[in-house]
Design a protein around this nucleic acid. Structure first.
Lengths: 118, 118
DNA sequence: CATTGACTTAGAGTTAACTCTAAGGCGTAA
DNA sequence: TTACGCCTTAGAGTTAACTCTAAGTCAATG
């Protein structure tokens, strides 16, 4: 699959896919006879996981650390697990904070309702 | 209170306070005889609310819209309420997404536990 | 055979939100 | 009175994560 098709499949632009490759998030992208990138469909799962980490606020630099461990194989599983556990803990805490913020917003909205409903 | 003291009180750097004033988030900051900014302690509440909006992912540009409505007085209460309601809705949705992401992370962690625990 | 459209690269440009620098002024403690 | 730490301004620099540009290659279509 060429980069355009893979971009559609993953929802990540071709520009961004090249960028991810350049910074090391994507490794072992093979080329066809013309030198064009040729993606395997199953690589889309990895992009999906990158997106999940991004959407939970992990910076690319840290995702890159995970990617490097992943590229080293099973021996690094423990380190990757630790990394994910730490991230999950942070995420849980962020969710708690956001729930507090949401409650505060709803209270403020209620204030607007009761004081300015005229 | 001078800018340094107000920075400590709010947890926002003096640089950033000047920046907020420049872009219009902070209005009516009065000056003392030497031309130095002189903050009222109760302005810290507004900074706190700005921080809440920021921490829930609202861009400064949109916070600025709220600030402009606020500066116009009670007549704009309805618009401000609407703005907050929309933001609260988005926030609630984001929290839901993050909870899904958290569940997926925990499942992946569990996978690491069961497959690489040696 | 010419055009079209997708691909290649290195590197420049963008946006948000700061963050810092340079050059200078004011007030007070030693 | 001099040193210190605060303050002032305009504007430059930073970081993250893209996003785009320019110049060129290549395969397939009319």
């Amino acid at each position: 699959m060429n980069i355009g098709q893979f971009a559609v499949l993953t929802g990540v632009s071709a520009h961004t896919l090249r960028y991810y490759e350049k910074i090391g998030l994507l490794r072992s992208v093979v080329r066809n006879g013309s030198g064009h990138r040729d993606y395997a469909a199953k690589e889309a799962e990895w992009i999906g996981f990158i997106n999940r980490l991004k959407e939970t606020g992990m910076p690319l630099k840290q995702i890159l650390i995970y990617a490097e461990l992943r590229a080293k194989g099973d021996a690094t599983a423990g380190q990757r697990q630790l990394l994910l556990e730490q991230h999950a803990t942070q995420l849980a805490e962020r969710i708690r904070h956001e729930q507090e913020h949401l409650a505060a917003l709803e209270q403020k909205i209620h204030y607007y309702q009761t004081h300015f409903s005229g």
